[in-house]
Design a protein around this nucleic acid. Sequence first.
DNA 1: AAAGATGCCTGGTAGC
DNA 2: TGCTACCAGGCATCTT
Length: 269
Amino acid sequence: MPELPEVETTRRGIQPYVEHKHIHSVTIRERRLRWPVSDTLTSLSMARVNKLERRAKYLILYLPDGFIIIHLGMSGSLRVVDSSAPIGKHDHIDLLMDDGKIVRYNDPRRFGSVLWVDDWENHPLFTKLGPEPLDEAFDADYLYQQAKEKKAPIKQFIMDNKNVVGVGNIYASEALFLSGIHPKRPAGSISKKRITQLVAHIKKTLTAAITQGGTTLRDFVGGDGKPGYFQQQLNVYGRGGEPCTACQTRLKEIKLGQRASVYCPKCQH
DNA sequence: AAAGATGCCTGGTAGC
DNA sequence: TGCTACCAGGCATCTT
């Protein structure tokens, strides 16, 4: 499932094909995504993409009269293909570029979205978002202040978009393991020192994953069609019952907010 | 009011 | 082979 590193990898993969290029036309084959795809997209013609940006797990295409907002959901992908490429199952939307290349949106589960908005920064999806995990604004002081008095388990707390964006199950699990913090520990009960380590590990795991081109666990394929390989060095995610990479203790798997959470009962407190 | 908990969307896959 | 149960992320909505 695309997490922040996959989205960033996708952004970098398709950037050369869309930024400062023109969208010749848009083809919609399936409009039933998380939200119905707007007809406005099909009326686009020779619209210049001035910029391709990422905010949280959203990709934002800056056009002259508005923005295309793309979210990959859990099974979505964007790929650049030639016009001769056969249309596959779940290929829902094509952005046909004026040089003949196609930016193709595929999403088997249709949990993703492709939106047309006038002003993304004031769109309800974006107004309540916390800082980017890799921005300087996301630091130990900030997270410690946010966590104060909060009783929610730290794992759910760092996966909550209003505290920090883009930290999904994989990276939350890994960062907590590396920080030696138990996923159920109340966010407000963690010392400043350990919060500092947690922030550092969130940044470190995300950066490493981006560097390596993202994690491929299920449906993800990068913009260039090449999968990432980060999953080979996961310490806890998806490893319930297997030995801890540090102490060989059998990793425990619990449910936290309906979400699988794996941790080492010896290393994490 | 804010925080926490729950439900829902969908299709691939594991298990039988 | 066909079926059922389960899982995933994040938004909407409910409850406290």
